[in-house]
Simulated scan of single mutants.
Amino acid sequence: MIYFDNSATTKISPEVLATYDTVSQKIWGNPSSLHNFGEEAWNLLEQARQQVAKLFGVKASEIIFTSGGSEGDNWVIKGTAFAKRRFGKHIITTAVEHAAVRNSMAQLEELGFNVTYLPVDSEGRINPADVKAALRPDTILVSIMAVNNEIGTVQPIKEVGEILKDYPNVHYMVDAVQAIGKGLDSAIFSDRVDFATFSGHKFHAPRGTGFVYMKSGRKIAPLISGGGQERTLRSGTENTPGDVAMARAIRLVKENEQRAVQQEQAIKERIYDHLKKFDHVKIFSGRDQGFAPHILCFAIVGVRGETIVHAFEEQGIYISTTSACSSKKHAEAGTLAAMKAPENEATSAVRISLGDQNTIEEADKFNQVFDNLYAGFKKIID
């Protein structure tokens, strides 16, 4: 089996699973309990928080554990809207955000908020000048993803941050779910980014784990109210084994990051250069540094994306249509539509997403299988 769908989810690593199992069985007390067993769980949870913070060069108090990226996106967007609505109801985002951001914005629009959706160019990238032009006196939030989950475009996070230095009262959120372990930390944890969201299952941690980086001094309303956990910002009994295991997963990712980025880029280039040879293939992702090393989106124009996915599946290779969160809806990809890609190209698009466990040998096998499948498809599309 060749698994090229790591942007959908990654396999939990054995070391991380061992940590989860150990904590689950030996330190299963409630961190909010007053007795020693609860105190032991609380101390372990705080050690995990400190470890995450240290790995990213931030304060432990700036790390809030969540259940994943969708919760983090919903919380920061809605929490900012509810906390700052008396100052304004205008939000800026892009036309190519993940569904967790898009649908949160849509909900706020129903409540009377005004959202500006920034356009993108032919590579799926916004122009920072458009952010500055869209800013208004009533703007309360700018939300931009770091890496596009469909085609891998790296957005100009730093450049937007420079613009927002002149607007200190505007919250700046970065959806960094696809960016962890990809050599982009300097942009995500810059001086001007106020919030960043992360999801554990994207980097070999258990599903149902994640965290939000919240810069000191920034305030938002809680999304989940209850017993006051996570400094009253995210109530609910903490997922101690999951959060501790996630902290270990991050450490393993950071230790291996430079080698993994180089390896993923090499695999991507091997496949990219092969696909470029074919007449009916349209590649949407770039192979330069303007794109993440692990995502490659392409189409065999005239063949529907789900047909391509199942054809590779029959050969033991797992890829996806452009986003696992919407792939079963058979809808035109949101990012490609925003890029004004023709409908026949957008509906033919599929995504390869690499991980640190993939190899060049797998890329060569993919290329070999592609040749055989393309020959069969060519009879249909010629």
Rank of each mutant, 00 (worst) to 15 (best):
G161F: 03
A18D: 15
H171L: 06
S13H: 15
N239F: 08
G183Y: 12
K378Q: 13
A346G: 10
C325A: 12
A333L: 00
E238I: 11
W75M: 14
E306A: 14
K379R: 09
S122A: 14
G355Q: 01
K78D: 15
G316C: 02
Y167C: 12
L296M: 05
G286L: 05
L118R: 03
G112V: 09
R136E: 14
F198G: 00
P31K: 01
E109C: 07
V174N: 01
G79F: 07
H35G: 02
G210L: 09
S323W: 14
Y117V: 03
T10E: 15
G38H: 01
I91M: 04
L141M: 11
N148L: 07
G290S: 12
V16H: 07
G302F: 04
T116L: 08
T116P: 13
L45W: 04
A129R: 11
H204Y: 06
W75N: 04
P168G: 01
D73P: 02
P241W: 11
Q315D: 13
I295C: 02
R234D: 03
A41Q: 00
R270Q: 13
N114R: 15
A99M: 14
Q263F: 08
S353C: 13
C297V: 09
A249T: 02
T116A: 12
I271C: 15
M145K: 11
K202C: 07
A266G: 10
P206Y: 07
L373E: 09
A8R: 01
S353D: 06
Y318P: 05
V174K: 05
T93W: 14
I77L: 10
I180M: 09
A81V: 11
D166M: 09
A341Y: 09
F312R: 07
L118Y: 10
F278D: 07
F370N: 09
N36W: 00
Q289T: 09
K282I: 10
D243I: 06
G236M: 05
G79I: 10
A129I: 03
N149Q: 03
F312T: 05
P31I: 00
R125Q: 04
V281G: 06
H280C: 01
E332G: 02
Q357D: 04
G29D: 04
T80P: 06
E110Q: 13
L111R: 13
S13C: 12
I220Y: 11
T66E: 03
E313M: 07
G124C: 14
I64K: 04
E343C: 04
G305C: 06
E150K: 07
V16T: 11
E332S: 03
G316L: 00
D356M: 14
G112H: 14
I295T: 10
V115F: 05
V369E: 02
A106V: 15
D185C: 08
A338G: 04
E40K: 03
Q25A: 09
G228H: 13
Q315M: 06
V177F: 10
H204C: 06
V244P: 02
F82A: 05
G124A: 08
E62M: 01
A129Y: 03
T209S: 08
K26M: 02
M173Q: 15
N43H: 09
I295H: 06
A53K: 04
T240G: 06
E314G: 13
S122R: 15
E39A: 11
Q51S: 14
V212C: 01
F370C: 07
N6S: 15
K254E: 09
A375D: 11
V23H: 01
G228N: 00
Q265T: 15
D382W: 01
